[in-house]
């Protein structure tokens, strides 16, 4: 009996914590779905009293105002994750094949780049990009995002390839495959899971990136920059709606990847 009460108290504590913890999240959703009379009053309600899709409608139907940032964010994200994989798959694979010392040194170098504050990279590349015409366009932003993405995707992929059973690859070599063929026919298809994870993380890193986008944007914002624009204008309905729209794909993808979420990945992947 005593045990039961303790378990109940424990559970209630956790539920209350979750409630408190997730309240801000609910708040954004609530604002994006409430009519102004729920918000702009002396005592705004906790629940959604006057439900409306008006804010979503006005954002989604605002034509290019919405579609251009969406397009830019999507294209940058997709381009960055594809380019990121193209560079980091072979790199990570060969790193995983180096001897221990060299492998360690390379991982350290790659990890070190994560310590560099973005602002000290963003400034010089912005100056250079203005000169060579990569300012305020997708390719330029993609290159900037790769600075963030490559270390993380290399990290993930070195882990994936290091864990690949050596015998299978050797077997393929014995069966007459050259090194590159063994990689394409055996290693690659069997590492597809890990590669997908790296790709999706890369996309997410680009999707919610803010610092490089701030430096490299003038007239063509990405989704986060557009949201920042609304919040700095005090337009809370549009900013909340943008926040929800930005968050939804992130949540879906993250939960799809849930079993792969390990502190090692995340330390590099999520914060920044």
């Amino acid at each position: 009996m005593k045990k039961r009460i303790r378990a109940a108290i424990f559970l209630i504590t956790i539920l209350i914590l979750i409630l408190v913890f997730l309240f801000p999240l609910y708040l954004v959703l609530k604002i994006s779905l409430s009519k102004p009379q729920d918000i702009f009053v002396e005592k705004p309600t906790y629940l959604i009293k006057n439900f409306t899709f008006e804010h979503f409608k006005s954002v989604l139907l605002s034509g290019e105002t919405f579609l251009n940032p969406l397009k830019k964010s999507l294209l940058t994200g997709i381009l960055a994750s594809i380019l990121g994989l193209l560079v980091s798959i072979p790199a990570a694979y060969s790193i995983s094949k180096f001897n221990y010392k060299l492998k360690y040194a390379l991982i350290l170098v790659i990890f070190m780049t994560r310590m560099i504050p973005e602002i000290s990279i963003a400034l010089p590349i912005t100056i250079s990009f203005i000169k060579i015409g990569l300012f305020d366009n997708i390719l330029g932003l993609t290159l900037a995002h790769l600075i963030r993405i490559l270390p993380v995707s290399c990290f993930i992929l070195v882990g994936v390839f290091s864990g690949f059973p050596d015998e299978l690859e050797r077997q393929a070599r014995i069966d007459g495959a050259s090194a590159s063929k063994a990689f394409i026919k055996v290693v690659l298809p069997l590492s597809l899971g890990g590669i997908t994870v790296a790709g999706i993380f890369s996309f997410l890193l680009s999707w919610d990136e803010f610092i490089y986008a701030s430096y490299l944007t003038l007239a063509r914002p990405t989704m986060p920059i557009k949201m920042y624009y609304y919040i700095s204008r005090g337009d809370i309905f549009s900013s909340a709606t943008y926040a929800v729209i930005i968050t939804i794909p992130v949540l879906i993808l993250t939960f799809a990847l849930q079993k792969y979420i390990k502190p090692d990945f995340l330390s590099g992947a999520i914060k920044g």
Partner: peptide
């Protein structure tokens, strides 16, 4: 000489069957 130019066959302790291929395709690989 790299292994694929030696024309030798090898069977490993844990068999190293390609897990993504059927028995037929495993045998057909080479």
């Amino acid at each position: 000489l790299p292994p694929h130019k030696r024309n030798m066959a090898m069977v490993f302790q844990n068999y190293a069957l390609y897990p993504h291929l059927s028995v037929f395709e495993n045998i057909a690989f080479g």
